[in-house]
Each structure stands twice: as structure tokens, then as C-alpha cells.
Amino acid sequence: MTRIIEVPASFDDRSFDQFAGCFGAWPPEERLLFDARGAQWASPYGLITMLTAAQALAEARREKPLFAVPQSDEVRRYWARTGFFRHAESLFEIHGRVPKASAGPSDALLDVTPIQAMEDVHDVVGRIAEPAARILNEQLGIGVNETMRFSMALSEACQNIVEHSGTGGWVAVQAYNWRRRLGRRVVVIAVSDAGIGFRPSLEPSHAKRYGDRWDDGAALEAALIQNVSRFRDPGRGQGIASIKRSVNHWDGKISIRSGTARLSIVPGWDDDAPLAERLPFFPGAQVQITIPAREPATE
């Protein structure tokens, strides 16, 4: 028997819960078919969470899932250019024609990239520093001196995968127009891992303090609002704190989903709920950082 995992036509952080709800109890017993035939668009978050799901299935020793590629040539080509299919080929049994990845440059600042070791963090941060500084400055109106914060935020977000997840993960960064949601250009950093998630990571050191209130939402609150870490070293927990400070500075948004909860620091331009609980379970942790243009985009 095969369970169908419907890939939303427009797949981003908002439609993610619809995607996560398709899996049922985790890990699913049946073989899965990721049906992306109707996909019209996917954000970096959408692309890397599909890979995360497949990675988590592999780590749970489940049968390799099937993947039905988008019917749209344009969508297929775009996903290929972002590097999605290059990584998907080892995690899925792919059904449908996949274009070669060299069909042209994507507008991704950072293609879909695996993060498995600290060397990967060095590579990602080093590769992206210069183009990110240029795009943040030219397209988002963020001062050249401030663009360093972007690389720092990316570095800390990726390090969390290696340090806390217990497995590998994925990162992608893209600049695009948010016409409907914001009417401005944004840069989005998406980071996702298939690891243990925030609650199990923090449980040994922090659960007692919360008593009955301890759950996925409380764990996210401890990490994002109170800057706690599973390490006793008081210098720890500053990575997320530094990301949060930069996000506030940019009037941006950070959203972290882990297990069955999602906690966001929501700027005035967004109508998301700060805390969403009792969501469909999804393995690991997913982070999205959204940095909006300071003024209407010129493009």
C-alpha cells in the first residue's frame, strides 16, 4: 500500500502544515509517494523540507519514497537549477523526466545544499558572503556594513544542525518578490534538519523547570525567547539570540518549527500567529528567516 503525500501547488512555510499532515503517524509504515505533479512553485523552505522528509524516512529505515515530478516544464527546470533533483535522486525513486541541472542559473543565492559537518558551514558562509552582500545592498537597501549580520545569521543557523540535530540537514537561500504577502522583495534563508528536534534536545536540561507545560511549544519558547541551550556553558544559546537581534534589526521574521509546534517572531507586516501548536508532527527542526527590502523593490 502506498500513501500519497500531496505536494502543495504553492509550497512554502504557509502550506507546509498541509504537506506535514499527509504523513500520519511518524514514521509512516506504508511506502510514500510524493506527488508534485501539480506543483507550480516552491520556496526554499518547500524544497528542503521535501528532502528532509525523505532523509528522515531513510534514517528510519523505511522504503525509499517515490517522487512524481512536476508536470510543468518550467517548474521542473527551476527545481533542477536550484539543485533539488541532484539531491532528491539519492533519496527518492524519481518518476518523470528530470532536466539536467545545468539548464541555466537559478535566482537562488544559495542552491539547495546539504549541511552535514562544520566544513559545510564554512563552505556555505564563504560562498554566499559576497553575492549576499551585493543582493542585500542592491535589492533590499540594507547597508553594506550590515550585510555581515546576514552571513553571521546563516552561519549560526547552519551550525545548529551540526551541533544539535544529531544528523544532517539542508539549507537554501533565495531572493524573490513577495508580491501578495508583502509587496516587497525579500531574501529568505531556509534551514531544515531531520534530527531529534528542539524538545528532545533540551529535555534533559530544561524540562523539569516547565513541569506539565513541557512540550514542543515550550521547548521552542525556551530556545527562541529565553536563549537557552542544552549545554551548561553560559556562552551557549547566543547563536539564536544573535539571529533574533539581526532579524529585529531588519524588521524581518524568524519562524522555527519543531515537532508539533511553530514559534515565530512576527513583524508588523505579517499576520502569522506567534505560536502555533498541535500541528501535524514533522521530524527535526525547520527554520525560516525572512528579510524584507527596506523600501519598495526597484525591479
Binding site: M118, E119, V121, H122, D123, V125, G126, S151, S155
Partner: peptide, 15 residues
């Protein structure tokens, strides 16, 4: 310390 062409001092293990 690190086999990387970049000049970024990042990550705790590197530090």
C-alpha cells in the same frame, strides 16, 4: 586549521 579557501572565522569547533 581549516581546509577552506574562504577567510571566515565561523563555527565553535573552528574557534
Amino acid at each position: 586549521t581549516v581546509q577552506s579557501p574562504y577567510r571566515c572565522l565561523v563555527t565553535r569547533p573552528t574557534g
